[in-house]
Design a protein around this nucleic acid. Structure first.
Length: 787
DNA sequence: GTAGGGTTAG
């Protein structure tokens, strides 16, 4: 067979799906010196482009001495869909003016549009007209897509609408679809009245002579985007054709707005009506199940897919499995999620990010870390998930390090990333860092972001500056229930229970619905302030007014509230009426109350139960041993100590820290490590002398009970919180508030001592311990000794 | 040779 006939056969066989043949032809060209016609070369480029083999396409292209406009446009379009605007532009620029035509302009406009550069696209559209090219329906579809990105006023859409009509494509369905989509996008701009613009879109839709799948889908998705689910549903119900995309848009709208039951109802209807369910339907439904916590429903969807999809496409497998990973992790089934992830034949970035955040949410930080290291590629989301995951799990330092590293790698953090960094500062109590990040947030315009601002509220509160937290809260352009919860929690942690309750009441007045977290917060606010009646009232309102079933955590806080107030019989009534067995949180609350009120009988009972439920928890042993010590039952003290030793339980060492000039200084009990600790001891000695003059008597009871301190007199002055406070007095500017942090609860003697210190040195001391804040000022503590 | 919608990761 000669070359000519081979060429002929190739040209008929080179369909877009014949990649193998394309390689054969290519090889033939390279090895035999065969010079195919431009037509064959163009086909070859097209086949390579179709199969995303752009590098081969480029090699063929570069071999052509004078590529024609078809070859150039094919390559340009391939770069465009691969998202490589730079190379697309290169090809376009290299095309001589005399060769260019409308199609090549259209392709380049689309390339800009894919590269999210709406201005460049519109500019090229204008240039193309100036150069005398007449825009066709493709030009309008492309430029309208670009315009959607930059138009924030209806008049922009209207302008192009006029041109569409002038150019005679005002009746072309595809152009009208793009135009509708343009109006729809514009409707989400804050500068326009959404209902007015949606009205214009709808008018176009109603006046169309012919509506295709896209018209219906665009219009329905448009209503969904402008939060008008009712209009979307009405349109869907009036649709006679069976258009899966339109149904998918509606379902996804329900899911995004949290109407999970409506989504499932529509899903069933879709199935009953015989509309083809596809990966888009399934992913939405699975995500509905994960968000709503409908484990059974999700399993059913999963099982249904396995039963019905015999030949799923690669795209189907990928997207469905990606959403399944999230589903299983959100339902607490990390093992299943991992299994699905491991078995996936092809993984993309979404899969990796899904499993990563699954581990992060399940608090499996080690696994998350190894996934993060293993990932073949990372994006902004990856880093953000990891930063906030580390922060949420208490690894503030690691989180901040990672945040800085992501910036070094040239990634521009988004508001969520900043929220993670701010939370790290909250965990560390690093006000200097927090303030710095706050100013960056403002500079970058992220201060209107909910996630960043909510994190700022928490950060300021946890660094001891409730007023700054309040300022953030009050200056937010809009707030959500998380903002309210954060602010109420801020007041609660600082013992300002009455204000916390007032804020909660205001939240109700503003028609914000409280959630489970709100009640946890408000109950502990009542607990810290001794507001028993109010606490009971709010607890009862949960199921009565808000249809929220109190969980074990809510019961535990109620019991904490009652026991702190010494109401043990009431607490018992509550535990008896609980719909479940008392777990560890309940017994812990009881034990805390018993410790405060010296109710040893019940306390010992609670402690013994806790030994069974969480044998590795150091706190129980310490409280129990202290109780026995107070009773003088030294045999029992010894027994508890032995039990602790035998079980290998280690007491978490007390440690306190303070920030001075952007540096965190850490002190341990009996610290000998900090370079300036000798000076600190010396200063403390002088201070105690002054304090004694005012009536301070060291309370040796606390030493007696401290299982780690063998040397009484010294141990008292060597508690880490004292060292940190003294260091602050020595190093911070005169009059500045001393803010220190402790990993455990503050010791009773230190609490007493700080009252005296605040008076002697005339400074405010703020202590954040494991549970709450203490503000010492002028010999008083804000907790009113109720802690 | 060129366009436009519905999904999954916080």
């Amino acid at each position: 067979m000669d070359f000519r006939s081979i060429a002929h056969r190739y040209s008929t066989l080179l369909t877009p799906n014949s990649q193998t043949l394309a390689r054969a032809v290519h090889a033939h060209i390279l090895t035999s010196g065969f010079r195919p016609s431009p037509y064959i070369l163009n086909r070859l480029i097209a086949v390579y482009c179709k199969s995303s083999n752009i590098r081969y396409a480029r090699r063929v292209f570069d071999k052509i001495p004078q590529p024609d406009i078809v070859a150039r446009t094919t390559l340009l379009a391939a770069y465009s869909s691969a998202g490589d605007v730079k190379l697309a532009k290169q090809v376009f620029r290299a095309t001589p003016m005399s060769m260019r035509d409308t199609v090549s302009y259209n392709a380049m406009i689309t390339a800009y549009s894919h590269g999210r550069d709406g201005h460049a696209a519109v500019w090229l559209f204008v240039e193309m007209k100036r150069k005398g090219f007449f825009p066709d329906s493709f030009s309008f579809s492309s430029v309208l897509g670009a315009l959607s990105m930059i138009a924030d006023e209806e008049k922009h859409c209207k302008q192009l609408h006029c041109e569409v009509v002038k150019c005679g494509v005002g009746n072309v369905t595809s152009v009208l679809n793009s135009l509708i989509s343009c109006y729809v996008n514009c409707a989400s701009s804050p500068l326009v009245s959404s209902s007015l613009v949606m009205g214009s879109a709808r008018k176009l839709f109603d006046e169309m002579h012919e509506r295709d799948e896209l018209s219906w889908t665009t219009m329905i998705a448009g209503y969904v985007r402008s939060d008008d689910l009712g209009a979307a549903r009405k349109l869907l119900d009036g649709m006679t054709e069976k258009i899966a995309c339109a149904w998918n848009a509606m379902i996804s709208g329900y899911v995004q707005h949290g109407f999970y039951n409506a989504a499932f109802e529509l899903f069933r209807k879709m199935h009953l009506m015989g509309i083809q369910l596809d990966e888009y339907t399934y992913t939405s439904m699975i995500s509905a199940a994960s968000n709503a916590g409908f484990y059974k429903c999700g399993r059913q969807v999963h099982a249904y897919i396995l039963r019905t999809e015999a030949q799923p496409s690669e795209h189907f497998i990928l997207s469905v499995h990606n959403s399944l990973i999230t589903f299983y992790t959100k339902c607490g089934k990390v093992v299943q999620a991992r299994e699905i992830f491991n078995k996936m034949p092809v993984k993309d970035l979404v899969s990796w990010n899904a499993i990563l955040s699954g581990f992060v949410n399940a608090r499996c930080i080690e696994e998350a870390n190894s996934i993060f290291k293993e990932m073949p590629e990372r994006n902004l989301l990856t880093w953000t998930v990891m930063v906030s995951g580390l922060a949420q799990n208490g690894f503030g330092e690691e989180a901040l390090k990672l945040f800085n590293q992501m910036r070094l790698e040239g990634l521009e953090p988004c508001d969520y990333s900043y929220a993670g960094a701010i939370m790290s500062c909250a965990v560390l109590g690093s006000l200097d860092n927090g303030k710095q990040i706050h100013s960056q947030v403002v500079r970058l315009g992220h201060d209107s972001s909910l996630s960043a601002s909510n994190a700022l509220i928490t950060m300021y509160a946890r660094c001891g500056l409730v007023e700054s937290a309040y300022t953030v809260f009050l200056t937010m352009p809009y707030v959500d229930s998380i903002s309210w919860n954060a602010m109420i929690a801020a007041l609660a942690q600082h013992g300002r229970g009455v204000e916390a309750i007032q804020l909660y009441e205001q939240m109700l007045k503003e028609d914000i619905l409280p959630d489970r977290i709100t009640f946890l917060t408000i109950l502990s606010a009542c607990s810290h302030a001794g507001l028993v009646k109010e606490g009971r009232h709010y607890f009862d309102s949960m199921s009565a007014c808000y249809d929220i079933t109190p969980g074990e955590d809510h019961y535990a806080r109620l019991i904490d509230l009652l026991c702190r107030a010494g109401l043990f019989s009431e607490a018992k009534n509550v535990t008896d009426s609980m719909p479940f067995e008392s777990g560890a949180p309940i017994w812990e609350a009881l034990l805390t109350g018993c410790r405060i009120h010296g109710n040893f009988e019940l306390g010992i009972q609670a402690a013994e139960r806790l030994f069974e439920l969480m044998p590795q928890h150091d706190g129980t042993y310490i409280i129990l041993s202290n109780m026995y010590a107070t009773l003088g039952q030294w045999d029992e003290v010894a027994r508890v100590r032995k039990l602790m030793r035998d079980r290998g339980v280690k007491k978490e060492p007390g440690c306190s820290w303070i920030e001075v000039e952007n540096m965190v200084h850490v002190f341990l009990v009996d610290d000998a490590v900090h370079p300036e600790v000798q000076a600190v001891y010396k200063y403390l000695e002088q201070l105690v002398h002054e304090m004694r003059k005012l009536g301070y008597v060291p309370d040796t009871k606390f030493v007696l009970h401290d299982m780690e301190s063998e040397h009484k007199e010294h141990a008292l002055s060597a508690h880490s919180e004292k060292l940190a406070v003294v260091y602050g007095i020595m190093k911070l500017p005169l009059g500045a508030t001393i803010r220190i942090f402790k990993n455990l609860r503050i010791c009773g003697d230190c609490h007493n001592a700080f009252k005296f210190i605040s008076k002697v040195v005339g400074r405010e001391i703020v202590v954040r311990d494991r549970k709450r804040f203490h503000h010492f000022k002028n010999g008083q503590c804000s907790c009113g000794n109720y802690w």
